[in-house]
Deep mutational scan, measured.
Amino acid sequence: KLETFPLDVLVNTAAEDLPRGVDPSRKENHLSDEDFKAVFGMTRSAFANLPLWKQQNLKKEKGLF
């Protein structure tokens, strides 16, 4: 399991300012399950079932792209 970080560490943070080991294209993977659901309004599995373009739009909207 990946290390999780608080939302404010990941949202609207440039790649070079992210904690070590965080993939800038997969910031959402480093949210706790609770934060993930609070941000996206759905579970990880529901998010994973969305088309890629919709996932990317949601990530942009939430500052996690």
Rank of each mutant, 00 (worst) to 15 (best):
Gly21Arg: 05
Lys1Ser: 12
Glu61Cys: 11
Pro6Gln: 04
Asp35Ser: 05
Arg44Leu: 05
Asn29Cys: 12
Ser25Tyr: 11
Phe5Asn: 03
Ala48Asp: 12
Val39Gly: 00
Asn57Asp: 15
Gln55Thr: 01
Lys59Cys: 06
Asn12Lys: 08
Ser45Pro: 09
Arg44Glu: 02
Asp35Glu: 09
Glu16Gly: 12
Val11Asp: 03
Leu18Asp: 03
Leu52Arg: 10
Gly63Pro: 01
Asn49Met: 12
Glu34Gly: 08
Ala46His: 11
Gln55Asn: 00
Pro19Tyr: 02
Ser25Lys: 13
Leu31Ala: 01
Gly21Pro: 05
Gly21Asp: 07
Lys60Pro: 00
Pro19Val: 04
Asp23Leu: 05
Lys62Glu: 03
Leu52Val: 13
Met42Arg: 01
Trp53Lys: 07
His30Pro: 02
Thr13Arg: 13
Ala15Lys: 12
Asn29Ser: 11
Ser32Lys: 05
Asp35Val: 09
Asn49Phe: 10
Lys59His: 02
Ala14Glu: 09
Asn57Thr: 13
Arg44Phe: 05
Lys60Phe: 11
Leu7Val: 09
Leu52Met: 12
Gly63Asp: 06
Asp33Glu: 12
Glu28Asp: 03
Leu18Glu: 04
Leu64Lys: 02
Asn12Ala: 09
Leu52Glu: 14
Arg44Gly: 01
Ala46Phe: 09
Lys37Val: 14
Pro19Met: 04
Pro51Gly: 04
Ala14Arg: 13
Trp53Glu: 13
Ser45Glu: 15
Lys54Val: 14
Phe47Lys: 00
Leu58Met: 12
Gly63Ala: 03
Gln55Tyr: 01
Asp35Gly: 04
Val11Asn: 05
Leu52Trp: 12
Glu3Tyr: 06
Asp17His: 10
Leu10Cys: 05
Phe40Thr: 01
Gly41Leu: 07
Ala38Phe: 12
Pro24Thr: 06
Ala38Met: 14
Phe47Val: 00
Glu28Tyr: 02
Arg20Val: 15
Arg44Cys: 04
Thr13Met: 15
Gln56Ser: 10
Ser25Phe: 13
Gly21Lys: 05
Asp35Met: 06
Phe36Met: 01
Thr4Leu: 12
Leu18Asn: 04
Pro24Asp: 06
Asp23Met: 05
Glu34Pro: 08
Ser25Gln: 15
Glu61Val: 09
Thr43Gly: 09
Leu7Cys: 07
Asn57Gln: 15
Phe40Val: 01
Glu61Met: 12
Glu34His: 10
Thr4Asn: 07
Asp23Asn: 10
Val39Tyr: 06
Lys60His: 08
Phe40Lys: 00
Phe5Thr: 03
Val22Pro: 03
Leu58Val: 05
Pro51Asp: 06
Asp17Val: 07
Val9Pro: 02
Thr13Tyr: 07
Gly41Asn: 12
Leu58Cys: 05
Ser25Leu: 15
Leu64Tyr: 07
Glu34Arg: 08
Ser45Ala: 14
Asp35Tyr: 01
Ser25Asn: 14
Ala15Ile: 15
Asn57Lys: 14
Gln56Asp: 15
Leu52Asn: 09
Lys60Arg: 13
Phe47Met: 01
Asn57Pro: 00
Ala46Gln: 14
Arg20Lys: 15
Ser32Asp: 07
Phe5Gln: 03
Asn29Val: 11
Thr43Lys: 06
Leu10Val: 03
Gly41Trp: 02
Asp8Ala: 13
Leu18Gly: 05
Val39Met: 07
Val22Glu: 02
Leu64Cys: 07
Asp17Phe: 09
Glu3His: 10
Asp33Ser: 05
Phe36His: 00
Asn12Tyr: 04
Thr43Trp: 02
Val9Ile: 13
Ser32Arg: 07
Lys62Phe: 08
Ser32Leu: 03
Phe5Leu: 07
Gly21Phe: 09
Phe65Gln: 13
Ala48Phe: 12
Leu7Thr: 05
Ala38Ser: 12
Lys59Tyr: 06
Gln55Trp: 00
Arg26Tyr: 11
Ala15Cys: 15
Phe65Gly: 15
Gly21His: 08
Asn57Val: 13
Leu31Gly: 01
Gly21Ile: 08
Asn12Cys: 14
Lys54Asp: 11
Leu31Asp: 01
Thr4Met: 08
Gly21Ala: 08
Asp17Lys: 11
Val39Leu: 12
Leu10Asn: 02
Gln55Ser: 01
Pro51Ser: 06
Asp33Thr: 05
Phe47Trp: 07
Ala14Tyr: 06
Phe40Glu: 00
Lys1Asp: 13
Asp35Thr: 06
Asp8Asn: 12
Thr13Asp: 06
Ser25Gly: 11
Gln56Trp: 09
Pro19Gln: 04
Asn29Trp: 12
Asn12Pro: 04
Leu31Pro: 01
Phe47Gly: 00
Gly63Val: 01
Phe36Asn: 00
Ser32Glu: 04
Leu52Gly: 09
Asn49Asp: 15
Asn49Pro: 01
Ala14Leu: 11
Thr4Glu: 07
His30Leu: 06
Met42Asn: 00
Leu10Trp: 01
Leu50Ile: 05
Arg26Leu: 07
Lys59Trp: 05
Ala15Leu: 13
Ser45Phe: 13
Lys1Ile: 11
Asn49Thr: 14
Asp23Arg: 04
Asn49Arg: 11
Leu58Asp: 01
Lys62Arg: 08
Lys1Phe: 13
Leu18Ser: 05
Glu3Met: 10
Phe5Ser: 03
Leu2Ile: 14
Glu61Ile: 10
Leu31Phe: 02
Ala46Thr: 10
Asn49Trp: 06
Asn12His: 11
Glu28Ile: 06
Asn29Leu: 15
Lys27Phe: 05
Lys37Gln: 14
Met42Ser: 01
Ser25Met: 14
Phe65Glu: 15
Glu28His: 03
Glu34Ala: 12
Leu7Gln: 05
Ala46Val: 13
Asn57Arg: 12
Lys37Thr: 12
Leu64Asp: 03
Ala48Trp: 09
Lys27Val: 15
Pro51Arg: 01
Asp33Pro: 07
Asn57Ile: 12
His30Cys: 06
Asn12Glu: 07
Leu7Arg: 05
Thr4Gly: 04
Gln56Asn: 14
Glu3Thr: 11
Ala15His: 11
Lys59Val: 07
Ser25Pro: 03
Glu16Thr: 10
Ser32Ala: 07
Asn29Lys: 11
Asn29Phe: 12
Ala14Phe: 08
Gly21Leu: 06
Lys1Gly: 13
Pro6Trp: 03
Lys37Met: 15
Leu7Met: 10
Arg26Ala: 10
Lys37Glu: 15
Leu52Pro: 10
Arg20Ile: 14
Pro6Cys: 05
Asn29Ala: 15
Glu61Tyr: 06
Ser45His: 13
His30Ala: 07
Phe36Tyr: 01
Phe36Pro: 00
Glu34Tyr: 09
Glu3Asn: 09
Pro19Glu: 04
Val9Gln: 10
Ala14Lys: 15
Asp33Trp: 04
Phe40Arg: 00
Phe47Gln: 00
Phe5Pro: 02
Ala15Thr: 15
Lys27Gln: 06
Leu64Asn: 03
Arg26Thr: 08
Asn57Cys: 15
Ala46Ile: 09
His30Tyr: 15
Ala38Asp: 11
Thr13Ala: 13
Asn57Trp: 12
Ser32Ile: 03
Asn29Ile: 10
Glu28Ser: 03
Asp35Pro: 00
Glu3Pro: 14
Gly41His: 10
Leu7Trp: 08
Ala15Val: 14
Glu34Asp: 13
Arg26Val: 07
Thr43Met: 06
Lys59Pro: 00
